[in-house]
Each structure stands twice: as structure tokens, then as C-alpha cells.
């Protein structure tokens, strides 16, 4: 087995040999933000093997419990496996403890898996969830398996192009419409500059009233169709 990646002075170099030959990679733009009533997750929809787009309408926003979701970046196989295991744990937690798991619980399990298997995984995850007690919360788990609670989180190869955009336009306590505009604006830039990101923009809005999906298409200038 090869190392997961190389950390050079100019950033991370993903060791493409480690992605087994032909393995599907989520060269991605993902993000999640806190807003006034909860959280919003967002992602592009491009999945590539090398320069070939293996899937142009991928869903990188994955539900692991009723109102706990995650954004996946890195190896598609690895992140799906991790998300599946977390979904199992959270399902068990809900049943055995007679209360739904909190976002912290989800983040803790994700972190345990990503940290203790760091040598064989290439998974960069963002976890976002809503519950009545804690409201909306966003956690980021980058490559090594550390856990960071954040006001908003961005990840994937496309995120490096939008650090400036997000830092400039970020405001705390945005309305839902403002939040959606922030996520959409950021992902549009990421898609524009990152060859490994593209396709549609998917979002999930998590609030007291549950999970609501959104979809924005490139041929409608990312204006619609909107709520699903």
C-alpha cells in the first residue's frame, strides 16, 4: 500500500498511484455553512477518473441520519464505505438509546473511522447536522482525521480556489436566501476554476422542519430549478 498523499511545500499532492488504477475520484467542491435557522450543505456533481468524467450528476451529499448529512470528497469508494458505516452506527444509536444522535455523535464516529484508518483512506469529509438542542452545526474532517468545528467549512480540490471568496463574503447569522446565495456563489467560482469540479450544484438545507433538497443547473445559469 502506498501512502495517502504527499505534503509538499506547495500543498498536498495526492498520490494518484494510491487511488488504485482506474479508481473513481471525487475531485470535488464541497461546503457546509451555518445560518440563522440551521445549516446548508452544498456540492458540485462531477466525478472523474483521471480527466474522464465518470459521472456528471453525482450526489455527494449523503444522509447518515434524519437531519445529519455529510459532504464527501476524496475516493468515492472510501467515502461511501465510511458514510455507510456511520449510517449504521447512528441508526443503532437512535434505536438503543431512544433518542436521535446529535451532530457531535456523528462527527465523533466519522472522526474515529477516518483517524484510525488514516493509512488506507483518502477521505475528506464535512459533517453538518441539525437538532433542536444544539441547532445547526458544521464539522470538518480533513485527510489526517482531525476534527474541526467551524462556522462554515469548504473542502475538495475546488475549495482552494474559493478561500478568498468565502472569507470576504462570509457573514454570521445569514437568512436562508442569503445562505443559499453564498453557497451557490462560492461553488460557481469553484466549478469555474477547478477542472475536477463541475456539473450541477446540489444543496441540502437542514432546519427544525427537516431536510430540504435544492438543485441548480448550469444550463439555467444555476438559477433553478431550486427547491425539490
Amino acid at each position: 500500500m502506498q501512502a495517502t498523499g504527499m505534503l509538499g511545500e506547495d500543498g498536498i499532492h495526492v498520490d494518484m498511484n494510491h487511488l488504485k488504477k482506474g479508481e473513481v475520484n471525487l475531485g470535488t467542491s464541497i461546503m457546509a455553512i451555518n445560518f440563522k435557522d440551521g445549516v446548508i450543505l452544498g456540492a458540485d456533481s462531477r466525478t472523474t477518473t483521471g480527466a474522464y468524467i465518470a459521472n456528471r450528476v453525482t450526489d455527494k451529499l449523503t444522509q447518515v441520519h434524519d437531519t445529519i448529512w455529510c459532504c464527501r470528497s476524496g475516493s468515492a469508494a472510501d467515502t461511501q464505505a465510511v458514510a455507510d458505516i456511520v449510517q449504521y452506527h447512528l441508526g443503532m444509536y437512535g434505536i438503543t438509546n431512544n433518542e436521535p444522535p446529535s451532530t457531535q455523535t456523528a462527527a465523533a464516529i466519522f472522526q474515529e473511522l477516518c483517524y484510525s484508518n488514516k493509512d488506507q483512506l483518502s477521505a475528506g469529509m464535512i459533517i453538518a447536522g441539525y437538532d433542536h438542542r444544539h441547532g445547526g452545526q458544521v464539522y470538518s474532517i480533513p485527510l489526517g482525521g482531525s476534527l474541526h468545528k467551524q462556522a462554515y467549512a469548504i473542502g475538495g480540490s475546488g475549495s482552494t480556489y474559493i478561500y478568498g471568496y468565502c472569507d470576504s463574503y462570509w457573514q454570521e447569522n445569514m437568512s436562508e436566501a442569503e445562505g443559499i446565495q453564498f453557497v451557490k456563489g462560492a461553488l460557481q467560482e469553484a466549478i469555474k476554476w477547478d477542472g475536477s469540479s463541475g456539473g450541477v450544484i446540489r444543496m441540502v438545507v437542514l432546519t427544525a422542519s427537516g431536510a430540504q433538497r435544492h438543485l441548480y443547473l448550469p444550463d439555467q445559469a444555476y438559477k433553478g430549478p431550486g427547491k425539490q
Partner: peptide
């Protein structure tokens, strides 16, 4: 078996 070869964050 190979383990961590370098720190990330």
C-alpha cells in the same frame, strides 16, 4: 505494513 509517513494538518 506501512503506517503514517507524514503529518497532514
Amino acid at each position: 505494513i506501512q503506517h503514517t509517513q507524514s503529518p497532514i494538518v
